[in-house]
């Protein structure tokens, strides 16, 4: 835990000095004086006049105007590229003719990369050129925001696919970014609910907690895999 509260009794206490929240006249003044780069450039004297339009004559082809469907596809692609799904509900708010548009999208040869995944709460669109199906599966679970289900589904999938046990800290990373408290609350429900009864927990020799699914592996094997990861080549190192 990098920025979490420090435990008592640590070797060194550090005094945090952070002036950024304080009202500081110099700082305010500085902010005021800071000019935007482009404004600053405008304000400087022109060195030479730009080239004339004649000098820029060109025979290069100009891009064709894009259709509505292509624009929508571009929007979805851009979001996929930034690791985001595009929820149907969010499109509905902005597109009155969404159903027709989606129908066109499906039939458009230029948009074959656009596909969707059905989550619990929504349908999510993404471009296969930029996002893998497996990531879309993870991202859809994250979007649905049902933590017990997300954790259970991913523990099962990891157990079956790799195979491996899943450490709790996996869910603290991108794209989950769950907090310890969120994970604990979810685990409580996983322990209680019948549909998650295959999800079991184990703790390695360096106190790292792992989950596995009894549908896919035995406790003994899951433990060996988890210990193998934590002990590694050089022995236990971290204990988060």
């Amino acid at each position: 835990m990098l920025f979490g509260p420090r435990k008592k009794g640590f070797a060194k206490e550090v005094e945090l000095t952070d002036f950024s929240q304080e009202v500081n006249e110099d700082k305010l003044k500085e902010e005021e004086e800071k000019m935007d780069l482009m404004d600053y450039l405008d304000q400087l004297d022109e060195e030479e006049s730009p080239l004339t339009s004649e000098e820029l004559e060109t025979e290069e082809a100009v891009e064709e105007e894009k259709s509505e469907t292509e624009l929508l596809a571009d929007f979805i692609r851009l979001r996929s590229q930034a690791a985001h799904l595009t929820a149907k509900s969010s499109l509905e708010k902005e597109e009155p003719e969404l159903e027709q548009l989606l129908e066109d999208l499906k039939n458009d040869e230029k948009c074959k990369d656009i596909t969707s995944i059905r989550g619990e709460k929504d349908i999510y669109f993404y471009s296969k050129d930029f996002m893998s199906d497996n990531y879309a599966m993870i991202a859809a679970l994250v979007e649905d925001n049902n933590l017990p289900r997300t954790i259970a589904e991913m523990v099962r999938w990891n157990c079956k696919t790799y195979p491996c046990a899943t450490p709790l800290y996996y869910f603290k990373n991108s794209p989950y970014f769950y907090t310890d408290a969120q994970i604990e609350r979810a685990l409580m429900r996983i322990r209680q609910e019948e549909e998650y009864s295959d999800i079991q927990e184990l703790t390695t020799g360096n106190n790292v907690r792992y989950l596995y699914s009894t549908l896919h592996m035995t406790e003994k094997y899951a433990r060996a895999l988890a210990e193998g990861v934590e002990y590694g080549e050089y022995g236990y190192r971290r204990s988060n």
Binding site: E33, K34, M35, D36, L37, M38, Y40, L41, D42, L44, D45, E46, E47, E48, P50, L51, L56
Partner: peptide, 22 residues
């Protein structure tokens, strides 16, 4: 584009410290 280039030429290699960039 040519206007942009001309603009940036005015500060080529100079420090941008003190300016905000969008």
């Amino acid at each position: 584009q040519e206007m942009t280039r001309r603009k940036f030429m005015k500060i080529s290699g100079k420090s941008l410290a003190g300016l905000t960039v969008s």
